[in-house]
Nucleic acid binder design. Sequence first.
DNA 1: GGTTGAT
DNA 2: ATCAACCAACGCGTG
DNA 3: CACGCG
Length: 323
Amino acid sequence: MMSSDETRDGVSLTNLDQPLFEEADATKRDLVDYLDAVRDRILPQLRGRPLSVVRTVRGQAPFMQKNLPKYAPSWIESVSMWAEASRREVAYAICNDRRTLLWFANQRAIEYHVTLVTAEHPDQQTHMVLDIDPPEGDRFDTVVGAARLIRQALADSGLSGAVKTSGAKGMHIFVPVQGPVPIEDVAAATRAVAARAERLDPALATTAYIREDRNGKVFLDSTRAGGATVVAAYSPRVRPGAPVSWPVDWEHLDDVHPRDFTVRTVAGLIRDGDPWAEQMPHAQRLPVDLIEEGHTIPVARVQAMHEGKRRARAARAAADEPS
DNA sequence: GGTTGAT
DNA sequence: ATCAACCAACGCGTG
DNA sequence: CACGCG
Ligand SMILES: [Mn+2]
Ligand SMILES: [Mn+2]
């Protein structure tokens, strides 16, 4: 039987009838067909941006891949960037066309994460992103409530954004930024928006980076900034049912759940439209007062990392001097 | 998924 | 030739 | 280099 293999746009596609991953309730063919069906919508989200993917192979645990493998065809675009963490050059793929998208699909790349800067202008963040993460055992309606807090905080600063499910458990709000603005100013403005939203309903939402300090509240995550990556709109996720990150109309927030949108179910919702592009407002200038307030807010991560060091030190001391 | 090293 | 083992990540701030 | 978190 050759029916499990085919060639599309010159790209070999293999094992199409295999399950995509455990609990995907979808085949590799479903992934390929989905990505090909939304290519005109997802490619603009990936275009020109260093790409990271999450792959699932042969039942192994999913892994993130940043460096483009040596065996990748030479026609795949890439940009090399110095990685401070590993002190080496990492060749990030740039996915600008259907062939590259199909090649990654055949690699079982499920998730497509991109940087908030382009390869061409690595010092200019194109969007401010508010990431909303529910607590364990969440109800999605708390995420919806938090999204409304962010929307209000933005509106209070004369800003507006577009909202999508992350495909996992939370939501993402994107505000296109009129530049050029230093990355650290966008990061500061992000912190300020999160802090203002938290103030609107401190019983519902928190900006505490340390999980233990969140007390069951929704996390308004302001760390999707600078060199961070965010899963692209329309990207599938390695989650039960193979859901996809999907745009939501602000007026329909109460009517949706992340699992409504999967690689197998959204075909009918697409038609020929591009809801993410259609709902994205024009680029906006970030108000100075927002940026200034943000610079007065300590970066949440720092406290968390100090706490981590403290615990590690304590653990080493306990190992050195057993009671 | 692809490559490498041992049978 | 077959096959099991192995690989596939970063940023952020600080000390 | 590792820490917490995504
Ligand atoms: Mn999130
Ligand atoms: Mn997050």
